[in-house]
């Protein structure tokens, strides 16, 4: 599904290298987790994959089902099935959450040559999915993320993911700031979306999330590279011992 090979990325504005030869492959149907110290480049990776401005790829490649992501506009990547649940979801004053969702869903359908959802069908689907995530109808009317609590913003990201049904879901610290119950709601939402042709890349600092969403592979990222990959036990090891020994071990 997602294949990243020897990716080197620097900031456009300054001479700062952030990703330094990162390679990673997520096969269809799998859940991979990325853990790593603050500032190791996890969010940068998610932005580069989704096409945010400000980064320059100096070497390497990233493909989604064999198609090069890096040549596409952000909206083309989205239509191709790439979704990013933001670490810091963005507020859009004055734009109703529902309007935003419907515009996004129909933009993607249009880009893929599918018919748009009628407003009746859309409302039915969105209300059902929102209810599962315990997002109130009132929250659907409010402007996108404006005045949402940290946890509400994260749940709203998952609602968007559920509506857009992407094939490749990148979740950047979706668990940060969630209370215990919200964590369960979000995990249930993600698990409900798991399928043989959908993959997840879950960036997290805590093993706790991975108790709910069982990963197939855990990667440790440090200084712009994947330095170690393993099974779920790797996450447990990080939780108990921190990164010190692990990083020393790989030099």
């Amino acid at each position: 599904m997602l294949k990243i090979d020897n990716l080197h990325v620097k900031l456009e504005e300054e001479d700062k290298q952030i990703l330094k030869g990162l390679s990673l492959e997520v096969p269809a149907g799998q859940v991979h987790a990325i853990m790593g110290p603050n500032g190791s480049g996890k969010s940068t990776l998610s932005y580069v994959l989704s096409g945010r401005d400000g980064y320059e790829v100096t070497e390497g490649s990233a493909t989604l089902d064999g198609e090069s992501l890096l040549d596409m506009e952000p909206e083309e990547r989205a239509a191709a099935g790439l979704f990013l649940a933001f670490q810091y979801p963005v507020e859009i004053p004055g734009v109703g959450n529902m309007t935003f969702l419907r515009t996004a869903v129909n933009a993607q359908r249009k880009a893929r040559g599918e018919a748009e959802l009628s407003s009746g069908d859309f409302l039915k689907v969105v209300r059902a999915k929102a209810a599962e995530l315990q997002i109130s109808p009132e929250m659907l009317k409010r402007p996108v993320n404006v005045g949402f609590s940290g946890g509400e913003k994260k749940r709203n990201e998952i609602l968007q993911m559920a509506m857009l049904e992407p094939r490749m879901c990148i979740m950047d610290e979706t668990d940060s700031g969630l209370d215990v119950d919200a964590m369960r709601l979000v995990s249930d939402g993600v698990n409900a979306l798991r399928s043989p042709d959908r993959s997840f890349l879950v960036i997290t600092h805590y093993q706790r999330l991975l108790n709910h969403i069982q990963p197939d592979v855990v990667h440790i990222m440090a200084n712009g590279r994947i330095v170690k990959s393993g099974g779920p036990e790797l996450a447990l090891q990080v939780e108990q011992e921190g990164y010190g020994d692990l990083l020393a071990e790989v030099g």
Binding site: E73, E75, A78, I92, V95, F100, T103
Partner: peptide
């Protein structure tokens, strides 16, 4: 960028933000 990541093209995104 947030709008575009969700699939809107740039003009659509500007229109949405400005209408907001």
């Amino acid at each position: 960028f947030y709008c575009r990541q969700r699939g809107m093209d740039e003009e659509e995104a500007v229109a949405l933000v400005v209408n907001g």
